[in-house]
């Protein structure tokens, strides 16, 4: 039985204004990829924000490797590899400079591993981050995340903007990394083919509520997408 890496236990948002999640519960074991699907505004990015943003207020428990993330949120960030448009790096400096500086604050950042991951992502470490395309920025962030050995990778629309050919390689690299490191991946996606073929589990969010959480194969994602979209 694989250990549970990420768990949501009856998580409901407490914000008085704006969008809140409602009674979300699921457990993601090590070595698996979970997809989060749903319409625009369903709460996919919000769910990820609940994990990475220490200011989020909610009832329930979100835990990584059995530890409540609110206990020491800053230390928990060591266990999270976050890939998103929201992630902020130094735009006027190269990928290598960013990695050297931001890597300093991580417990287990390995610069050689970062360079190796950049090669796999087919990106030069001398490229200026602000001059990268969206897809390249996601790949850079993924290389940075791999370098600090997280327990869980949170990918928010990371593959949008990636060319279809590279996307195949991307998932191959991802699968290899999580198998070697006993990590897990939680990713949001709008791409039906990706959800059907690449995810081990799929959660469907509807208006902040997890309306479905199943192993792929059991869930007819084609029917879901044709009904939803």
């Amino acid at each position: 039985m694989e250990p549970v890496i990420l768990e949501f236990y009856h998580v409901s948002g407490l914000a008085k204004k704006g969008f809140v999640l409602s009674d979300i519960s699921f457990a993601l074991p090590a070595g698996y990829i979970m997809g989060l699907a749903g319409k625009n505004g369903a709460g996919k990015t919000t769910l990820i924000d609940y994990i990475v943003n220490p200011k989020q207020r909610y009832n329930g428990v979100i835990s990584i490797q059995g530890e409540d993330i609110r206990k020491d949120h800053a230390a928990m960030q060591n266990k999270i590899g976050f890939v998103s448009e929201k992630n902020n790096f130094l735009l006027e400096h190269s990928a290598a400079q960013n990695a050297k500086i931001f890597g300093m604050v991580y417990r287990h950042f390995d610069y050689e591993r970062f360079l190796s991951a950049m090669r796999q992502m087919e990106l030069s470490e001398t490229k200026i981050v602000g001059k990268m395309s969206r897809g390249e920025q996601m790949r850079f962030q993924m290389a940075f995340a791999i370098a600090h050995h997280p327990a869980v990778y949170l990918l928010d629309e990371a593959t949008a903007g990636m060319d279809p050919v590279f996307r195949i390689d991307f998932f191959r690299i991802l699968q290899k990394v999580i198998e070697q490191e006993e990590a897990s991946v939680l990713m949001t996606s709008h791409i039906a083919e990706e959800i059907e073929q690449k995810m081990d589990f799929t959660g469907i969010l509807t208006d902040g509520h997890l309306s479905s959480f199943q192993e792929n194969g059991a869930l007819n994602t084609t029917q879901y997408f044709s009904n939803t979209y």
């Binding site: 990475v52 943003n53 800053a74 992630n87």
Partner: peptide, 19 residues
């Protein structure tokens, strides 16, 4: 950054840095 002043806290928001 790009002639703008960006809050430092924005850049380190998702890093393991205790505020």
């Amino acid at each position: 950054e790009n002639t703008r002043l960006v809050p430092f806290s924005q850049k380190i928001k998702y890093l393991p840095v205790d505020p």
